[in-house]
Amino acid sequence: MRKTLAFLALGLLSTVLGQSVESILNAVQENLEKSPWEARLVGRIQAQDGSLQPVEVLLRAVLAGEKVLRLEFKKPPSLEGNFVVVTEKEVWNYLYLTNQLVIQPRAKARIEGLNANLTFLGDFRELAAKVQLRLEGEGTSEEGPVWRLAGRPREGGLGFTQAEILVLKADPRPVALTLRDAAGNPVAELRLLDFRRSRLSPAQLKRYPQDAQVVRR
């Protein structure tokens, strides 16, 4: 009996927390879809050689209607001028030094170089489908009180094995993201700064120099 009650209690608790995670992620997605926005993604991210490199990315998104997310690299200096455009079906990688635009199906592409795959940044419902998240509790950040979500990918290939996301309670959106590998070493430690609503269109976010060599993979 005790065991049954304990099991039921655990089941109910996990259901409540599960719903909370789902409702939080839904609130985040609805909030981010409300109008186009831009923010700076600042922190450190693992490079190909395994070292953590300072990274600064200008993130711009239109997540209602035709969904487009654009990541423009400002740091490291060697990637400045490169950008990534994530649409519902494709990932576009623009390489400044070789003036090439490489277009890949989204299922095949990884925003590598970046060992962590950040394509989910534009779709938090997709994140919930790929990462088994749980509500760890609440906390505070510079922006205000936050929910702490943590979890593990449901399947391999995402480039990380642990994730922690801080979600701002007052204006549901992520303010910090930490991804770790199997050994617990950080793959990415990022903060979302200077978030603001902006007048952006999908066409603006998909712009690229017209003389670029377009390569479809």
Partner: peptide
């Protein structure tokens, strides 16, 4: 081709 995302190709 070896695709390396934003790092290169």
């Amino acid at each position: 081709a070896l695709e390396l995302g934003p790092a290169g190709r």
